[in-house]
């Protein structure tokens, strides 16, 4: 399946076959379709855009129109085996609350995001003095839906704050290959263009 985006393929590999999955911000349903066909999961999705939802439902996917910031609170604890947030956390209004909800309603959470600590982004800001525009993040500062960028280090910090355990973390370089497990965090943070984290909570789903 060489036509499948590398980050989606990576996420699909993290998911146990036959599990129950919620993809938050599922867009046109590419990941859900991949998960359904390759991992035979019970795939559900939430998507903000009307066009995205209509397209997903027309493809036969179980997708509801909704908002990661407001609608995750309605799901009960442990409703899913995996809750996935693919390339969406930077567009949420309250990333911390979204991640808290994901860890509550899923036994595992998978988050992929563009790394704002990548050298190219650092260089654009440092040398041009302009907000970075890259092939990965092509919108200018006033057009972008991405309002909460973070670096890999920032994200690790948030996971620590929430007491989430990283079961697996992968950084992908600009060509989409895995940077490798041996590399130290600073190296990932500098050369990883995007990152994928598989997380689980340590405490109870909801505070008693």
């Amino acid at each position: 399946m060489s036509d499948v985006r590398i980050d989606l393929s990576l996420i699909a590999d993290m998911v146990e076959p036959g599990s129950k999955v919620l993809d938050v911000g599922c867009g046109d349903g590419a990941l859900l379709a991949l998960l359904a066909s390759r991992r035979h999961v019970d795939a559900r999705g939430i998507e903000l855009s009307r066009e995205g939802v209509a397209g997903c439902v027309a493809r036969g996917l179980s997708v509801i129109q909704g908002d990661a910031d407001t609608d995750l609170g309605d799901y009960p604890d442990d409703a899913f085996d995996y809750v996935i947030l693919s390339q969406t956390i930077q567009a949420t209004r309250a990333p911390r609350r979204v991640l808290e909800n994901m860890l509550r309603i899923g036994r595992r959470a998978i988050v992929s995001f563009p790394n704002f600590g990548h050298w190219n982004i650092r260089a654009q800001l440092a040398f041009k003095g302009r907000m970075p525009v890259t092939s990965n993040l092509p919108e200018t500062w006033h057009d972008t839906p991405n309002i909460h960028f973070c670096t890999i280090r920032d994200f690790v910090g948030l996971c620590d704050t929430l007491g989430a355990v990283t079961e697996r973390a992968v950084a992908l370089n600009a060509s989409g290959s895995d940077i490798g497990v041996k590399a130290p965090w600073w190296f990932w943070n500098l050369f990883g263009q995007q990152a994928v984290f598989l997380l689980r909570r340590t405490g109870p789903a909801s505070p008693p």
Binding site: D42, R44, R50, V53, A54, C56, V57, L61, S62, V63, I64, Q65, G66, D71, D74, Y75, P76, A79
Partner: peptide, 18 residues
């Protein structure tokens, strides 16, 4: 309706049409 179906774990699609 959708929230209730989600809470009960049912399979649901929902779209608000223009």
């Amino acid at each position: 309706i959708v929230h209730a179906l989600n809470a009960s774990g049912a399979s649901v699609s929902f779209v608000e049409l223009e």
